[in-house]
Amino acid sequence: MSVLVFAENWEGRFKKSTFEAISYAGEIARQMGTSATAVVIGNASDEDMKALGKYGASKVLFLKNDKLNTLEPGVYTSILAQAAKSCEAKVVIISYTYTGKAIAPRIAVRLKGGLVSGAIALPTGLNPFTVRKKCFSGKGLTDVVVNAEVKVIAITPNSYKLNTGTGEAALEALAFTLNDGDLKVVSKEIKKSSGKVALTEAEIVVSAGRGMKGPENWGMIEQLAEALGAATACSKPVADMGWRPHHEHVGQTGITIGPNLYIAIGISGAIQHLAGVSSSKVIVVINSDAEAPFFKAADYGIVGDAFQIVPQLVEAVKRLKAAHN
């Protein structure tokens, strides 16, 4: 009766959000007096799979098949359902990533379970099984009780700390037969985003808005991101005017992110923008207008001209990095 956790990978590499999901599953398993079993679909190395033990997975059920390196939601669901059955899982943990959003609802229906998506912490109680999540785009919190026997939790990336132990997970191949007709969603092309750091996974995000005046001024934004090892983002009008690619646009109608640090430069802080970034742990705002609404949502702020401040910031970050290397 273990806790099942989907160990998502991208081109065979596990991401931090996967380690978080496993740590989360491991802790729930501990509270329930059982162990956590991870499921890996795709081509991860044995070494990397064994290392999932560090985060709390005692066992890894894996399935290597080149046709399953990209997400086929129905098939992934069948594989997870089979794994859940084999270990009689009553709790299934999935990261609330794009892949997780595609499969968590399906696995919940398949297992006749209840789903809490976007959980932000460990269950506050196991009986009734209660999990806290954000609602109203971060403007509220709600406690959700799962009444079904099987509980599926999609945990928000960056909301649960990593467990770092030592163990090694035992590996076991899943016997799953894939028929060609099962692949209903066929991958044709992958368009990798240009940024070095993927926005949805970045721990630090440097974002800029209309205050930058034009696309030719993004050099300093990229330099700051580079110095911090951050991803870059932007406000909606900036993407609409074609100053920056659309996949960088954050907010209510763009991407929702929750990095450890969000630096907003020349962004006024409209409510629709905040909707996409208010889960950030620490927010820094740099704006020439002391009345900009963003300061109300910020932890640290500088009132001043971005064109003066950002280059100084780049230098200060470089000095800090140099001093700590």
Binding site: W10, V185, V186, K188, I190, E201
Partner: peptide, 15 residues
Amino acid sequence: TVEREIDGGKEVVSL
């Protein structure tokens, strides 16, 4: 033909 967001960018799929 559908384009969807994936964690590393976008993917074009057919169904």
